[in-house]
Design a protein around this nucleic acid. Sequence first.
DNA 1: ACCCTAACCAATTTCGAATTGGTGGGGCAA
DNA 2: TTGCCCCACCAATTCGAAATTGGTTAGGGT
Lengths: 225, 225
Amino acid sequence: MDEGQGALTQLKAYLAQNRLPERARLPSERVLCEALGVSRGELRKSLAILEAEGAIWRHVGKGTFLGARPVQELSTVGGIADLTNPREVMRARLLLEPLLAGEAALNASSANLEEMDRCLVGARRVESWRHYENWDNRLHRAVAEAAGNTVLLALFDLLNAVRRAVVWGRLRPKPERPPDDHHSFADHEAVVAAIRERDVVGAAEAMRAHLDNVERNLTAVRPAA
Amino acid sequence: MDEGQGALTQLKAYLAQNRLPERARLPSERVLCEALGVSRGELRKSLAILEAEGAIWRHVGKGTFLGARPVQELSTVGGIADLTNPREVMRARLLLEPLLAGEAALNASSANLEEMDRCLVGARRVESWRHYENWDNRLHRAVAEAAGNTVLLALFDLLNAVRRAVVWGRLRPKPERPPDDHHSFADHEAVVAAIRERDVVGAAEAMRAHLDNVERNLTAVRPAA
DNA sequence: ACCCTAACCAATTTCGAATTGGTGGGGCAA
DNA sequence: TTGCCCCACCAATTCGAAATTGGTTAGGGT
């Protein structure tokens, strides 16, 4: 009588019989309909019902899968940048980067340290503030890489991307190149030195001190020249 | 005399002559060395110098490009989950969440504290591990929210998503519901209490102690200290 | 009307060939 | 010995053709 339901019954029996793991992919329609002895059209009706119930999800070219359709990404750089402000970003750096420096002191390889040295030397040689910021970024990322944790590196990259998106276009007129006694030179060298000496606490504190200086410079009132 | 520098000179001349757009890809080494009339080894030395200077970046299979190496836009949950492992995720939690708890102690509003209390009560009343984990997730996120920093919250969410993606499908044969003396109950209450008392250090330490317990529970064999 | 079959479509995966930066070994000359 | 060139090889990546997949349509049969 309910021949139309026959396919759905067979399909449910198939799913119950073969204990498929969560999110498993089940055979293609062309294979499955033959295995169940039903036409493809009938099978598709049954699959449509299961999909409507939320038991499965389908996608052209991919296949049919058990469980709920995976959600799309929500934490985009632009989305975060719209909701935050430079102060929050600075605070996040002030908390996260000392932590990374401490991990770097534990895990840095000699290759990591060489990269940091390259950045220190390169930053001293630049002829423009723009180039200096490249070396600065590269050094901070080298520290994050040296932490040796993929997840933490991803968090750093996200924070960094947000920072650049937030302060985009806020470049103030600055002297042509950073002065030789710019605090960052000594700050950076102290951070790298602590990492090289495997001084976990020292590296974290040096990084915190550096970022404190950066924040102080950002909020400083320009002295009357 | 400086035959070794000859290749570098030729290369710089080539780059200056052909006005390449920003981030342009330059010819492959095998093509370029023949075009410049130098051996591949000499060309690679010059390219290494330019790369050390930050003028170019290279990647196997991709090629050599002008400008700075692009940031790893692998901040997608799936992308990170493929590259990491549960141990790294746990380490990241162990570092990030105490920091968030400390910030929460500074910034938590009474509404934040009420939400945490709701989670504490809810976790006590659950009848299954699945429900308990919902409340656990909600509490940890409440702490992250209480930190009052959009960027840090986004980092927490990303870490959380990665954690769920990494441990997805892990079967845990456990009793039907968490026992009344499960460590997490006391741990969570200690964290919230410290936040309520505005004890920054205490909140961070309580969270760290909690995650230490979690890690200890996850690993059958306790790792050597 | 209803369903089966077949063919087609667009999205996606798969697989192999080609390409690219990185590396090591043999030959050779200073 | 010390470089340098040349060659072969490696791992990562790209590219493209072919196969696969869910979705759709048209024809024919019951």
